[in-house]
Design a protein around this nucleic acid. Structure first.
Length: 628
DNA sequence: TAAGTCACG
DNA sequence: ACGTACGTGACTTAT
């Protein structure tokens, strides 16, 4: 039977998949107020000044937080109520609004007062928006997005999802207001009454969601600790994003040009070898040329059954044929040019030449950050040509770049959690851990370990962190299954504590449906009980990896918070400018280099007292490449 | 919008 | 017998 058409989607939709969600009656709109006079603003200010906690939200003309301008501000101090101050609605015949800068001047004291406690959904964004108007908001105590991330990392964290899931409330959507696709308009072009309803609903629902989630967090000391860490990290991340990183555009342009010349040359050569023109960037067309026209052997297939042309396949085919090598080189260079050397300078702010990434704090299920627009966490380093991109990450006049990274952080965490005596001993003795592993697995003295054996041990150690199988290890080392099995068996004989940890973790995941980091972050594994063996096995591997990756994420967040706190307290000129999972990058006045090279590693190593020492190493140079 | 590929830790 | 290493984001092609 066909569902009846809903004339007003979003407003009256039933929550589809949350039978446990309570059904609250829709809030009467009468309690939502639009502020258009100074008297009304004064009354609002009086109200929020005495409130215990105020939900605060901005409406803007852009999702790009560095460029977004305020269109209006909404507030709620009790559930069911709300107030909206329209500031920059400029459609034809829009009512006269209070002047934006004067309103902000009036609100500035309250906004910047740390004692005036505030709540928001994704507060890092709003911090940027206010900062764009010269206001540095203080007193942000809560963020419902981060509450959800801490409590239910595997579920969506958008406000509308939270309101549906926890309150059974729905509301006006952004698309209802502004449309979508090419016809989408910005919120300043939308009727004030409609936006007021929408904006008040946002702060109202935020306060309402907070009332449900915050008590749940308070029930568990570990979750409370992690939540506080997330709140403090949010501010540190805001500072990093705001600082941005200086990009040397001419260097990138020169690299782009050189890459372009070589790419064209490779195209010509590839077309000649193929006997016809084709698009070297199209795996489909490569497949046709390789496997249909030239009759090359199919090495492996993709997820959808098509013959694969990925790097591994091309390497293999390049042993016997000339064309795959051309494509391989073309792929690499086109990736560098298209993703990095062409793009990074475009994303810099013209006035400052700095790029400002966005760190997503509630995306990665392990507790890690992710970085986007641009992603500064996947800048090349593994090949010499790629690594040159890092030469374009530079410091301003009188400054240098410093990079501090945790050494072997995940293996150290594995040693801590497992308590394995041999692994703990290796770290306590300051050994080269891969070499030590090789000595154990191959049964030779540490001094006798060959570079080949060390390389094997390194792959094994990585494999352990990823919850490897013999099959996976065999593929990675290019050895047969039985040999891989033997290595793993040998490893577990030498490091029985690690074996126990792996077994315990699988059991814990199955019993509880989640695993935890050292600091109490929970990582849910919905597929751990799946009847599908493949999915279940995947969840088991994730269960083994998550405590290590997640604890490492906790540690670097602790470091970011601590380091920023010290930089502020000592009024240093050093600025934190990037985070890359186990690495923090700084722009440092030359006069502070001596201080920083001692103090940052000390701070990073000191954020936690584990059964193994933490080690952070730091390098300094004129650019990010030379700082390693 | 999905698929394939590849950049990072 | 199965057939994958854990976690991300961006680009290009093709539908």
């Amino acid at each position: 039977m066909a569902k009846p058409v809903n004339p007003n989607p979003g407003l009256f939709d039933e929550p589809a998949d949350t039978p446990e969600a309570p059904q609250a009656p829709r809030v009467p709109n009468a309690a939502y107020e639009t502020i258009l006079s100074w008297d009304a603003l004064d009354a609002l200010l009086a109200k929020i000044s005495t409130a215990e906690l105020t939900a605060l939200d901005t409406e803007t003309n852009s999702l790009d937080e560095m460029r977004a301008e305020l269109v209006g501000i909404s507030f709620s101090v009790s559930v069911g109520e709300g107030a909206y101050i329209p500031l920059a609605h400029n459609y034809p015949d829009a009512p006269e609004q209070l002047p934006r800068e004067e309103v902000l001047a009036k609100l500035k004291h309250w906004l910047e007062n740390p004692a005036a406690k505030k709540l928001g959904q994704h507060i890092k964004y709003d911090r940027h928006v206010f900062a764009n108007h010269g206001v540095e908001v203080q007193g942000y105590a809560h963020d419902t997005m981060l509450q959800s991330y801490v409590l239910e990392v595997h579920k969506p964290h958008g406000l509308s999802s939270l309101a549906e899931r926890h309150l059974g409330r729905s509301g006006i959507t952004f698309e209802d207001l502004c449309g979508k696709g090419v016809n989408q308009i910005t919120i300043n072009q939308v009727d004030i009454a409609k936006v007021s309803e929408y904006a008040c609903e946002d702060t109202d629902q935020t306060l309402d969601v907070h009332g449900v989630l915050w008590p749940q967090i308070q029930l568990d000391a570990g979750l409370g600790f992690i939540y506080q860490l997330e709140i403090e990290s949010s501010e540190a991340l805001y500072r990093i994003e705001r600082n941005g990183v200086l990009i040397d555009a001419p260097t990138l342009a020169a690299q782009s040009h050189a890459l372009g010349v070589r790419i064209l040359q490779l195209e010509t050569e590839a077309h000649e070898l193929a006997g016809q023109p084709f698009n070297l960037s199209s795996p489909k067309q490569i497949g046709e040329i390789f496997f249909t026209k030239l009759g090359l052997p199919v090495v492996k297939k993709t997820a959808t059954g098509a013959p694969s042309t990925d790097e591994e396949v091309l390497e293999k085919l390049a042993e016997d044929f000339p064309l795959p090598a051309k494509i391989l080189e073309h792929r690499g260079l086109a990736k560098l040019k298209g993703t990095y050397t062409d793009k990074l300078a475009q994303l810099a702010l013209p006035r400052t030449g700095r790029v400002h990434t966005h760190y997503a704090q509630a995306v990665a299920v392990t507790g890690r950050l992710s970085s986007n627009d641009p992603n500064l966490q996947n800048i090349p380093i593994r090949t010499p040509e790629g690594r040159r991109v890092r030469e374009a990450f530079v410091a301003g006049v009188g400054n240098v770049i410093a990079s501090a990274d945790y050494s072997q952080i995940e293996l150290r965490i594995m040693a801590h959690i497992s308590g394995d005596a041999a692994l703990l001993g290796a770290f306590r003795d300051g050994l080269d851990v891969h070499k030590a592993t090789a000595a154990e697995v191959f049964g030779v003295a540490v001094e006798q370990v060959t570079s080949e054996q060390r390389r094997y041990a390194k792959v094994i150690n990585f494999g352990l962190i990823y919850g490897m199988s013999a099959y996976g290890l065999a593929r990675n080392l290019g050895i047969d299954n039985q040999a891989a099995k033997n290595y793993i068996q040998r490893y577990f004989e030498r490091y029985p504590g690690v074996k126990d940890y792996m077994d315990r973790t699988r059991e814990e995941a199955k019993a509880k449906g989640y695993v935890q980091t050292v600091f109490g972050r929970r990582l849910y594994l919905p597929e751990i009980g799946s009847p599908n063996g493949q999915r279940r096995a995947g969840a088991e591997r994730a269960a083994i990896n998550a405590p290590m990756q997640g604890t490492a994420a906790d540690l670097i967040k602790l470091s970011m918070v601590k380091v920023q706190q010290v930089l502020d307290a000592e009024q240093r000129g050093t600025r934190m400018i990037m985070q890359v999972h186990d690495e923090l990058v700084f722009e440092v006045p030359e006069a502070e280099v001596d201080w920083l090279t001692i103090e940052i590693p000390r701070l990073m190593a000191g954020v936690a007292d584990l059964k193994v020492p933490l080690l952070a190493e730091i390098g300094v140079g004129p650019n990010w490449d030379k700082a390693h």
